[in-house]
Computed example of a mutant assay.
Amino acid sequence: MTHVLYGLPHSLYSGKARSYLRKNGIPFVERSPADARFRNDIVPKIGRVIIPVLETADGKVIQDTADIIDHFESAGVRHSASPPGPRQRAVAHLVDLYAVVTLVRHAMHYRWSYLGSQRRFLTHAFAGDTQVMARMQSYLPMLGVTEATITEIERSLADLLRSLDRHFAQHPYLLGGQASQGDYGLLGPMFAHLGRDPVPLAIMQNTAPNVFRWTERMNAPGPDMAEFGDYPAGFAADDAVPDTLLPLLDLIAQEMVGELIDKAAALADHVAAHDPAEGAPVADRPHHRTIAAVATRFRGVPFEAGLQPYQFLVWQWLADEGATDDAVRALFAEHGLLPLLDTPRAARVERRGNIEVWGRIG
């Protein structure tokens, strides 16, 4: 029963799916999207060229890492990504959301703003396809990577690495001795881009060796935490969130809350202007990731970002998990994160047929 994962070593979300399959001992082989079967059989089924895609042993095609993980979680796996307690689940979803909203910006900046310093490596990774490389580089402004924001992006990475390095010096994973949804989400940008491309890799190895070691651990098939001795396997007992992780919550509040509040307002404007029908695709074409532009700020610096419905899908998982739980609300209140649970969103976003569609409106 071997599955096929279509992905690439330098693909952000491929790394997330690959790690989950390895950690759970799920047999798979990985194929490049250049494979003829991907072009001829898989792309027509999903309607766009995108990775990762999983073709299960019985022929089911699943696109998007979250859907891949959900597929196996619902069937039961050796090491679930979902902690048993509501506080830990909420924190796992929070870190996953931060990776999608904020850290993609860091990942793309350090890959493409430093192209001249790592051109040979990236040219090899992209098989010399300069057109694809140029297209990827063109996404930087939409993601908020501008001359005005670059200084704060780099300060942010330094703050993040400092915080995570202190945590991973004491704990093998975010929430104890087992990888959570937050670990898999964080691994996306922290490995394929920031922990593999030469420029950010050197920064990580030289300033945050415990974070680099965590990226190795996340890519290993087993727990891979020998240096922690008899550290207990599994998530931390009693739904505990380690004290060493709390500075990360403060950083997330500083960097992401305001941006998402602005994007929620922009979504409301878009829904009011277009009156979308429930079940309709959120974008005019399956490969389009954004539906509008949003004026917002990152660490106090103004920029214009793309309004990406997928971010609202990931935000919903967090809000659905923690909005009514007293323990989650208390934790989030302590760290300035309550707006993530309480900010109204004009419409839900769902995944159907491997694309994002409008869910309940209003």
Rank of each mutant, 00 (worst) to 15 (best):
P9C: 02
H10M: 14
L12M: 14
G15R: 13
Y20L: 12
K23T: 05
K23N: 09
I26T: 03
F28A: 14
R39W: 01
R39L: 13
N40W: 03
I46A: 12
I51C: 04
I51Y: 13
V53W: 06
L54K: 09
L54Y: 10
A57C: 09
D58S: 14
D58W: 09
K60I: 07
I62S: 09
D70P: 07
S74E: 14
A75T: 07
A75P: 05
V77W: 04
A81M: 13
S82Y: 13
S82R: 15
G85E: 11
H93F: 15
V95R: 06
V100T: 11
T102L: 05
R105A: 11
Y110M: 03
W112L: 03
S117A: 15
S117E: 15
R120A: 15
R120G: 03
H124Q: 15
H124P: 02
T130A: 14
M133W: 00
R135A: 14
M136A: 14
M136N: 11
S138K: 09
M142L: 14
L143V: 05
V145S: 02
T151W: 00
S156D: 15
L157E: 08
S163H: 07
Q170K: 12
Q170Y: 03
P172H: 13
Y173S: 01
L174I: 01
G177N: 08
S180N: 07
D183P: 06
Y184W: 13
A192K: 12
H193V: 06
L194M: 13
L194Q: 08
V199N: 09
N206A: 14
A208Y: 02
P209Q: 01
V211Y: 02
V211I: 04
F212T: 11
E216G: 10
R217M: 05
A220G: 04
G222A: 10
G222V: 02
E227L: 12
Y231F: 15
Y231C: 05
P232G: 08
P232V: 13
G234I: 08
F235S: 05
A237W: 01
D239N: 10
L248W: 06
L251H: 10
E259R: 00
A265W: 01
A266V: 05
A268T: 12
H270N: 00
V271F: 02
A272M: 02
D275P: 02
E278V: 10
V282M: 13
H288Y: 15
A292K: 03
A292F: 05
A295I: 00
R297A: 15
R297Y: 07
V301F: 00
P302M: 09
P302R: 12
P309T: 01
L313F: 15
W315N: 07
Q316L: 01
G322C: 09
G322N: 08
T324V: 01
H335C: 04
G336A: 06
L338F: 01
T343E: 15
R348H: 04
E350M: 09
G353T: 07
V357I: 15
W358E: 11
R360S: 12
G362C: 04
G362H: 00
